[in-house]
Simulated scan of single mutants.
Amino acid sequence: MDPDSVRTGERVPHGGETDRDILDFSANTNPYTPDGVEAVYADALEDSRRYPDDDYPEFRAAAGEFVGCEAERVIPTPGGLAAIRLALEVSLEPGDEALVPFPSFGEYAREVRLQGASPRFVPHDEILAAERDALEDCALAIVCTPNNPTGDAADPDALAAFATRCGAAGTTLLVDEAFLGFTDLPSAARLESEDVIVARSLTKLFGLPGLRAGFAVATGERREALETARRAWSLGTPAARVGAHCLRRDAFVRETRKRVAGEREQMREALASRFDVRPSDAPYLLCDVGERDVDSVIAAARADGVAIRDARTFRGLDSHVRVAVTDRESNDRLLAALGVADGSESDDSSTGRKH
């Protein structure tokens, strides 16, 4: 990290409501957690009287199985954002440029700048079309799939072709798959390319954002660099144990994907009666409120006890809000707070426990 850049850097806004009396649709986390989490956490807490095993064999094995790669390619990190920072730390030097999508996760540009490098912004739906001559000027390119906040996932074949061009240009490709677990799409970890680093977050899919568990996947020299640079004991014992437990809950993942897909479509149809709503592969929907005042839309929802995300904080958006997709009862409250109604019924079954 570049000290001069740190001194001039700033933090960026995120979703997440601290008032527990407000229904939070500003952050995109599963309202359910897998069965058994409490018992695993309790056992791990007792074992936390000792340092964790810094090799994290159980966690690496579970993560590798989840994304379809060898366990040794997994680098444990305290959350997906920690994997992103680690990737940038080993890939960027002061004066470098990085290809950064927009509108997208605000931490990308911030983290690039903290390394003393400069973001080169590209529309998120055009970045996979970048050719080798554009890539040769950039030390790093970032792809978010599904993209946050728009919700569209990258085509796996287009992503593979882009990874090949990045390799030919000598550009590291960072693929942020924080929300990919909500889809059936394969991880970029399957590419086994030495030019690709994958960042994954456990906490959104498994409903445990405060746990701070995630990982990176890489191979070859980049894998060695990440492993050398990561902090010792980079995961606490509870995070490592609960993370491994969650990653092996296949039925929970299947039910979550099914529920989110069904709820998302019904919410999109209802919201489309009032807003311009983008199609999405993620557990959230981006809504253009048009000529309405964004502040008034947010305030009206909050007056009804619902927090939604002001999407104007994303580069390039000036009339948008983002809403999460959760469970049927909560989703109906959101729709009512936004002045739309959905009278349909659904089976909101889950193999986990609701918060």
Rank of each mutant, 00 (worst) to 15 (best):
D4G: 11
T8D: 09
T8W: 00
T8L: 11
V12R: 14
H14V: 12
G16Q: 11
T18F: 11
D19P: 02
I22E: 03
P31V: 10
G36Q: 03
V37C: 14
V37D: 06
A44K: 04
S48W: 05
P52M: 07
A63K: 05
A63F: 08
A63C: 03
G64Q: 05
F66E: 08
V67Q: 07
R73A: 14
P78F: 02
P78I: 04
G79A: 10
I84T: 14
I84E: 13
I84Q: 10
I84H: 12
A87N: 04
L88S: 02
E89G: 04
V90R: 03
V90F: 04
L92P: 03
E93H: 07
D96S: 09
F102H: 15
P103G: 02
E111T: 10
V112N: 08
R113D: 02
L114P: 00
Q115M: 14
A117D: 07
P119Y: 09
P119R: 08
P119N: 04
R120S: 13
F121H: 15
E126H: 09
I127C: 05
L128W: 07
A130H: 00
A130S: 14
D133W: 02
A134Y: 02
E136I: 06
V143A: 06
C144L: 04
C144Y: 01
D152E: 15
A153K: 10
A163L: 05
T164G: 08
R165P: 00
A178T: 14
G181K: 04
T183E: 08
D184H: 10
A188Q: 05
A188L: 05
A189K: 10
L191N: 10
E194S: 14
A199M: 11
S201H: 05
L202T: 14
L202V: 12
K204R: 14
F206I: 07
G207F: 01
L211T: 06
G214I: 06
F215G: 09
A216Q: 12
A216V: 13
E221A: 14
A225S: 15
L226W: 07
E227K: 06
W233V: 11
S234M: 06
L235T: 08
R241C: 10
G243L: 12
A244G: 13
H245R: 11
C246V: 09
R248F: 01
R249G: 00
V253P: 00
E255P: 00
T256W: 05
R259M: 13
A261K: 12
L271A: 07
R274M: 01
F275Y: 15
D276G: 02
S280N: 10
S280A: 15
A282S: 15
L285Q: 07
L286E: 01
L286S: 05
C287P: 01
D288W: 04
V289A: 03
V294T: 14
V294K: 04
A301N: 08
R302F: 01
R302K: 14
D304G: 11
A307Y: 02
R309V: 01
D310G: 09
R315M: 10
G316E: 04
D318G: 11
V321K: 01
V323Q: 04
A324G: 12
R328A: 13
S330A: 15
R333K: 13
A336S: 15
G339L: 05
D342P: 00
E345F: 03
S349D: 15
